[in-house]
């Protein structure tokens, strides 16, 4: 007997298992030293994914991850704004300003970047930036990375900033190419 319920549940479980660790990693960093629970942030994110799952399940891993990232970022920003409003005891007035890149555009851009593309990009970084970023991605703190390279902690910060700038520059043209391919193939 076909059981729609079970199939949906298993797919959603698999979806959560796949994305939860990396989301939780980000959430722990965002929530560090605050009263916000990283698990709550992630849980809320998946909760929001539930009604959207019919669409999400058929998208690429990158697109789904980008969606989850945007959603979690939104939840986190909401939290920040709420905190701000509460601490200052005044109503929050939304700031209407033109952003350089809209949230939707950010999400769309990153939805097109595959993990393969990322691995190729990181190989093209300068060796010290690449290695520092790898250590960081493994979960090493700044002081551990600084010790590894025997450099001041501040240097690690600027290396990571540079690594990210370069990665973005390497990956964004790929986005443009992927878009063009998408446009020609459709």
């Amino acid at each position: 007997m076909s059981n729609l319920f079970n199939r949906d549940r298993r797919r959603f479980e698999a979806f959560i298992r796949q994305h939860r660790p990396s989301l939780l990693g980000l959430a722990r960093r965002l929530c560090a030293r605050s009263s916000l629970e990283p698990e709550d942030l992630v849980q809320e994110t998946f909760e929001r994914a539930m009604p959207e799952f019919a669409h999400l399940k058929d998208r690429t891993d990158s697109a789904a991850a980008a969606w989850l990232c945007t959603t979690m970022t939104n939840r986190f920003l909401d939290y920040c704004r709420r905190q701000r409003t509460e601490s200052r005891g005044m109503p929050h007035l939304a700031l209407v300003q033109d952003l350089a890149v809209s949230p939707e555009e950010t999400q769309e851009n990153w939805a097109l970047v595959s993990t393969d593309a990322f691995q190729k990009a990181i190989e093209r970084l300068k060796p010290h930036l690449r290695d520092a970023y790898r250590l960081h991605a493994e979960g090493k703190r700044y002081n551990a990375i600084a010790e590894h390279f025997n450099v001041p902690v501040g240097t690690v910060g600027s290396w990571l900033t540079l690594a990210r700038r370069d990665l973005k520059e390497l990956l964004l043209p790929q986005v443009a190419v992927a878009r063009e391919q998408g446009a020609t193939s459709s």
Binding site: P21, S22, L23, L24, G25, L26, R28, R29, D61, S62, A65, A66, L68, C69, T70, M72, T73, V101, P103, T106, Q107, N109, W110, V113, T115, D116, F118, Q119, I122, Y133, R134, H136, A137, E138, G139, K140, R141, R164, L167, K168, L171
Partner: peptide, 21 residues
Amino acid sequence: RELLQLELLASRALGGSASVA
């Protein structure tokens, strides 16, 4: 937003969960 997308991608691409510290 930009930074978190990149970090999430790194975490997915490099296997580590970027901060299981």
